[in-house]
């Protein structure tokens, strides 16, 4: 269990509590500046909250040695930065750093899970955006973490790659890992998360199964955009009401699988 207790962080988080369970995909959603990335970084132990604490299996994250924490929690930042032109395999191998071993078996497994075997000797600079996103996720999987925390892992990916990557994350969740994703795309959260945590100005606005947490009334209140869901559960699309949206000064219609 990864548990946030009353997290406060000046200007970013205002009393966030949430207990996250392994085996689930939890999506953290909210408008820009709602505190999603800050919450994720607190959960990953990268950002110390001003007050409150994060507990991993009932131990405060701050009391766990950095290396042990790194073995338990894999974190995928949004930036996708790769400073040096390593080969795919060497990049994935960085995921083994917290374990201090070669971890060849885990690296092979991570490469296989994301269909990267044929790319394993390629320099990262020669990959497409979708391939690189898979490699960076494989880096996290190679560490065999109990928790996978990813900040916008699906942004900048086309539809096919989004679905493929979320399929891999679901497999990890089914294998027992807790998966926590910051997602901008509400339709992806609706269709693929087991649970959605909606943040609004640093507070939890909703927390529950996607169908209730992403209720159109709540979307209108938090995002300021009147919208409705189309389609069947598991294949929903979000349609914003254009006229009302422009009156509210918000974005235009959006929809996605």
């Amino acid at each position: 269990m990864l548990e946030a207790r009353d997290l406060m962080l000046a200007g970013r988080l205002d009393g966030v509590s949430a207990a996250l369970r392994p085996g689930e995909i939890t999506a953290i959603c909210g408008p820009n500046g709602a505190g999603k990335s800050s919450l994720l970084q607190c959960l990953a132990g990268l950002l110390a909250p001003g007050s409150g604490d994060v507990r991993l299996d009932d131990t405060a994250l701050g009391r766990i040695p950095a290396r042990q924490r790194a073995q338990a929690i894999g974190y995928l930042p949004q930036s996708g930065e790769v400073a040096w032109d390593l080969s795919v395999r060497n990049l994935v191998a960085l995921g083994r750093l917290p374990h201090g071993d070669g971890g060849e078996a885990q690296i092979d497994a991570a490469l296989a899970a994301l269909d990267l075997e044929i790319l394993s000797t390629r320099p990262v600079s020669t990959l497409s955006g979708g391939e690189k996103a898979r490699v960076l996720l494989a880096r996290v999987l190679a560490g065999d973490p109990h928790w996978i925390l990813a900040d916008e892992p699906l942004a900048a990916l086309d539809l096919g790659h989004q679905l493929a990557l979320i399929g891999h994350l679901r497999q990890a969740a089914e294998a027992g890992a807790g998966v926590v994703l910051v997602l901008h795309d509400l339709a992806l959260a609706m269709n693929h998360a087991s649970r959605v945590l909606v943040l609004e100005q640093g507070r939890v606005a909703a927390d529950g199964p996607p169908e209730t947490a992403l209720d159109p009334m709540l979307i209108e209140r938090v995002w300021g955009v009147p919208a409705r869901w189309l389609g069947e559960p598991g294949a929903r699309a979000l349609v914003a009401d254009d006229q009302a949206a422009s009156a509210a000064g918000a974005g235009s219609s959006r929809g996605s699988a």
Binding site: L46, A66, E81, L91, L97
Partner: peptide, 15 residues
């Protein structure tokens, strides 16, 4: 080596 992935990722790797 860990810094190859940026400062946040390096810290998440226990550095």
């Amino acid at each position: 080596d860990a810094l190859t992935l940026g400062e946040a990722a390096a810290r998440s790797l226990g550095i």
